[in-house]
Structures are given as structure tokens and as C-alpha cells.
Amino acid sequence: MSSDIAPTRTIGGVDLPAAGTWKVDAGHTEVGFVGRHFMLTKVRGRFTGVDAAVEIGERPEDSRVTAVIDMASVDSGDGTRDDHLRSADFFDVAKYPRATFASTSVTWDGTSGTLVGDLTIKDVTRSVTLAVDYLGYARDPWDNDRAVFSAHGKINREDWGLTWNMALEAGGILVSKEIELTLDLETIRQS
């Protein structure tokens, strides 16, 4: 959406997105996770149903992020595993179809910052800290202003009641408790 207001501004010598609402483009966004199987192999997954917005503040520290994730949209590349993740053993999507995220604080320095927010899964809310990078701005061929961000952090899935596991005969557990979160967000300026 082109407007008379510049899509970026310079703060502290760094170009950053203009203040306003930037809606996440779900087709160019990935909310992913990485866990370990047998405590060795990385298993990657993602949620394809994400509705989110970034409210960029006049001061970067005043920015806010909100998101709703369709938990049934989980995709790990294996249908049997995805069905298990959707079951009551994990996300219980029949009872808890959505997860939500709402930021509570932002710190910012240059093109990087820290985003702290409340992540709710299965009606359990816990604080999550994400390291965020602003990757840049582009105007697409349809005259939309786009800002791109990446973020990552780690959580203990058991903090949200996602406790299903199996002990291994040789010791250890089948599925790691620690989960890496990886987000790549492409946003479109709304106002």
C-alpha cells in the first residue's frame, strides 16, 4: 500500500520501518520449531496458519506484536507425526484449536532487539523471550511496502503441559523437552 508517508525512517543512523500497522503476510511467513528425536536428530516443523500484526511504535521500544496460530496447521513433513502432534498427547487441537502470542516488552538497538511476550498454548500462558532482527524493507511489484524480520528463542514444552514422552531403553527420552522457535516474518504496511 503506497502512501505519502515514507515506509522507513532513520533512527540512530539505522533505517527502520515507519511507525504504524504492518500485517504479517502468511504466504511469506514461517513460524517454525525444532525438537530432537532420540535426543539426537533434529525434527523440524512449522505452522502454516498464522494471523499476526506488528504495531511499530514511534519509538521502537513502543512496538507490539500479536499473533494467532492455527494449531491444526502443524506440518512436520510426516502425516503420522502431525496427527500425533494434533492429538491430546500434544496440542489437543479439538479442544485448543489456537495458540496466541502478545508481546509485553521490546528492547531495541540498531537492527536487533529482544521481544518478550505471553505465549498461550492449551490455555497455559508463559513468558517467552525472542531475539529479533530487522532484515530490511522492499516495495513489491503491486506497490506494497514490506518489512522483513526474523526471530528465534528456546522454550521448554513441558511449561505448557506438552509432557508426552517415552523413556528410551538405553537412557534418555524420545522427544526433547527443549524446543527451538524460529520465525521468519514478512509484513505489509497497512497504515
Rank of each mutant, 00 (worst) to 15 (best):
L185D: 07
I69F: 03
K23R: 14
H152A: 15
S63M: 07
W164C: 04
G45Y: 03
P141D: 04
V43A: 14
L85K: 02
A26F: 03
G20P: 06
T125S: 15
S2A: 15
H84Y: 07
D123K: 06
K177Y: 04
R126Q: 14
G13S: 09
V175D: 02
K154G: 13
T10G: 01
G136Y: 08
F101A: 01
D145T: 07
H84I: 02
F90V: 05
G27C: 10
P141Q: 09
D159R: 10
L174G: 09
P7K: 08
V14I: 11
V116T: 13
I188S: 14
R157W: 13
T182V: 14
G171E: 07
R98E: 10
G45S: 03
R189N: 11
E186G: 13
D70R: 03
D4K: 12
V116E: 09
D140T: 13
D89I: 12
R44N: 13
E169H: 08
R36Y: 12
T111F: 09
L115I: 10
L115P: 00
G136D: 11
V34L: 13
T107F: 05
S176M: 07
S150I: 14
D51K: 05
D145P: 03
F47K: 02
M166Q: 15
D184I: 15
V93E: 01
H152T: 14
F90R: 03
D123I: 06
T10R: 03
S3E: 15
I5W: 14
G57R: 04
K154I: 13
A53R: 02
R126S: 13
G49A: 10
G45V: 01
V128M: 11
R189Y: 09
Y96C: 03
G32A: 07
L135W: 12
A131C: 06
G110V: 09
K122D: 07
A72H: 02
T21C: 11
W108M: 08
E55R: 04
V65R: 00
V124S: 07
E58R: 10
A170Y: 10
T104N: 12
L174T: 11
I155G: 06
T104I: 11
R9C: 13
G110P: 09
V31H: 00
L162W: 01
G153S: 10
F90T: 06
S150E: 14
S73Y: 00
P17L: 08
E178Q: 15
R9K: 12
D83L: 03
P60E: 01
S112W: 02
P60C: 02
R81Q: 15
A18W: 03
A167T: 12
K122R: 15
Y134N: 07
D70L: 05
I179E: 11
A151G: 08
A99E: 01
V106F: 01
V124A: 08
K154R: 15
A26P: 03
V65A: 03
G12Y: 08
Y137D: 12
